[in-house]
């Protein structure tokens, strides 16, 4: 389960680097909006990439509580786990 989360986090970080640039410092605590400057539209587009990467549906309503990389990775992990 932990490995699965780590795998999710790594894949998510790969997508985030494509948005924020290869030099962006990304940790689980990184704030998506304040530190990576990912605005609402970029975040919605990122979610479509994430949905395809993990073959899941991520309702955009669920993003209201997401601020950090860890929170987004946890949300994805939770949806993946519920599907299995």
């Amino acid at each position: 389960m932990v490995n699965d989360y780590t795998d999710t986090l790594q894949k998510l970080c790969h997508h985030l680097r494509q948005l924020a640039g290869p030099d962006a410092e990304i940790t689980p605590q990184t704030d998506l909006i304040d530190e990576l400057a990912i605005d609402s539209v970029k975040l919605l587009n990122l979610i479509m990439e994430v949905e395809d990467e993990f073959d899941i549906s991520v309702p955009i309503n669920a993003l209201a509580d997401v601020q950090t990389v860890h929170e987004l990775a946890s949300l994805i992990h939770q949806i993946k786990s519920a599907k299995q």
Partner: peptide, 24 residues
């Protein structure tokens, strides 16, 4: 948002993408 339903987006005018999301 007001409906409380789960909101999923598909890529603009992309029918393969809509189909994929419906299948999912």
């Amino acid at each position: 948002r007001l409906s409380g339903a789960e909101i999923i987006r598909f890529r603009h005018n992309d029918m393969a993408d809509l189909d994929k999301r419906l299948r999912r």
